[in-house]
Design a protein around this nucleic acid. Sequence first.
DNA 1: TTGTGTGCAAAACATTTGCACACAT
DNA 2: ATGTGTGCAAATGTTTTGCACACAA
Lengths: 149, 149
Amino acid sequence: MKKNEIDQLKLNFQQYLKDKGLACTSQRDAIIEHLVKETSHFNADTFVHSLQKKHLPVSRATVYRTLQHLEDAGIIREVAINTSQAYYEFTGRTTHHEHLVCENCGTIIEFVDDQLEERIEQIARLHHLSITRHTVQISGYCRSCHEKQ
Amino acid sequence: MKKNEIDQLKLNFQQYLKDKGLACTSQRDAIIEHLVKETSHFNADTFVHSLQKKHLPVSRATVYRTLQHLEDAGIIREVAINTSQAYYEFTGRTTHHEHLVCENCGTIIEFVDDQLEERIEQIARLHHLSITRHTVQISGYCRSCHEKQ
DNA sequence: TTGTGTGCAAAACATTTGCACACAT
DNA sequence: ATGTGTGCAAATGTTTTGCACACAA
């Protein structure tokens, strides 16, 4: 991600905070700064750990609270990879996509498929649902895990 | 669901238990018996409550443990409707289907779409994933909730 | 009888919240 | 200065687990 894109993203979030009458704090800054350097998928726990590793002291509670704001702002979204923990992904980096998850090694492969997307919209229309979001997750064994068995 | 189908389902589960060297207890019997009379979607908590309402005394711990067995046996499956609680649905009743969920009233509409299913299988093949399962969830506002706003 | 299941209460997790103090506006 | 944010620890909600007793094989 280019520097000007990062800056743009930070501005977006700052604008969101301002619009909502929320403050722009050093912790929120550290979180959004850190976000773009993270892997594409993370949960609250891995996020807290990676912040601590970089000596950015942000409490767990603040991470949870800020993750909520980032989701509201549309900068991250929750994806149903794991049911016991909330998984997030950064949406700023790419266009909308879906996931293939290997049940053995946990690898996540992202994909984009126009035909699939279009069919989903058709289905929503057919059932008179005013669609706001959707998720597709395909689970199985990736090539190398499949060969090992 | 017809009586002989219910009996068949119970036999399936009993066979599964036997194969695994597990015991067939009155609690497990009560749970599977109750399952077919439940609404199509439920979670551990609603399940415990509805058992208690029918004066079937099964502890919460046993419900959790048995739900796990039922999932292993393929009689129920976990669906990612709600992230903070595990949601299950009974698979014996219908063929494979996906979900439309109203974000406002929580209504769940099930649908089957061959075109969508086929595309998902193609995508898995394309990425060399040996597919074991998949979920599609479309969220938005149902017709009546959309009109109210 | 021998092993597995059950219920209870406690533990384990993930997440949220109340409160006193700190900081952004 | 005023209101919002933060960190801490405690509370919450869901699910899992250790243990003593009960039941199925």
